[in-house]
Amino acid sequence: MQYSQKVLDHFMKPHNVGKIENPDGEATEGSPACGDQVTLHLRVNPETLIIEDIKFQSYGCASNIATGSIITDMALGKTLDEASEIHWKDAAAELDGLPPQKMHCSVLAVDTLHAAIRNYKERHGQAKRSGFDKEAILDELRKVIYPQVGEDIVTLKMVKYVGFENGEVIIDLGVPKFDQYRDNIAEEIREHLEKFEAVKSIEINM
C-alpha cells in the first residue's frame, strides 16, 4: 500500500500548522487513545463570514497530518457555508486518494472542520445545538469507515438496525465473524457516539 506523492508532500511539509490566539471558532475531534486527534482554530471575518486564517494540529499518522493540512488549504478563503460543504471524499480526492484503511483520517479532518464552523456559529448565535435522534446517529455512522474498502458503513449497508431510546443506542451490524476490522469498527462507532451527552449506553451487535 502506497501513499500518493501529494500525501507525502503534505505529511513532510504540512501547511497551516499551529494555533490561533483567541480563535473565533475551534474544535478538537478524535482521541489519542484511538491513535488520531485533530485540533482546528479559525479566524473568521464577521462581515463576510470568510475564513481568513486557519491553523491545525494533529496527533496521528502520516495521512492524519496530510488530511489536516489539505483541509486547511481547502477551507482558507471560503465562507463558512462553503467550507461546510466540503466532504471527506473531496479532501481525499484533493490528496490524489488515500488507502482505504486511511479514509477515516479524511473523515476526522473534515469532521473537525465542520465542528469548528459549528462552534463559531454557536458562539455567534447563528446556530442552535440540534437535538439528538436516530437520524443524528446515522449521520455519525456515515463517518465510520470500513477500512477494507474505504467507504462508510451506512453506504455499504452494513448497518442493519439503529435503535435509540432513553439514551440507549442499539446498533446491529453485518460484519463477517472473522473480519480483521471488527474491533476497529466497534471502537470507531463508540468514539463517534460517546461524545454526545444524550448517549448513555451503546450496544453494538455484530
Binding site: 484511538c34 491513535g35 488520531d36 496521528g60 499518522c61 492524519n64 484503511q101 486511511k102 477500512p147 480483521q180 476490522y181 474491533d183 476497529n184
Partner: peptide, 11 residues
Amino acid sequence: GSACASQGLKT
C-alpha cells in the same frame, strides 16, 4: 506499535 501501522488497525 501504532495501530495505524498494524493489520486490522489494532492497538
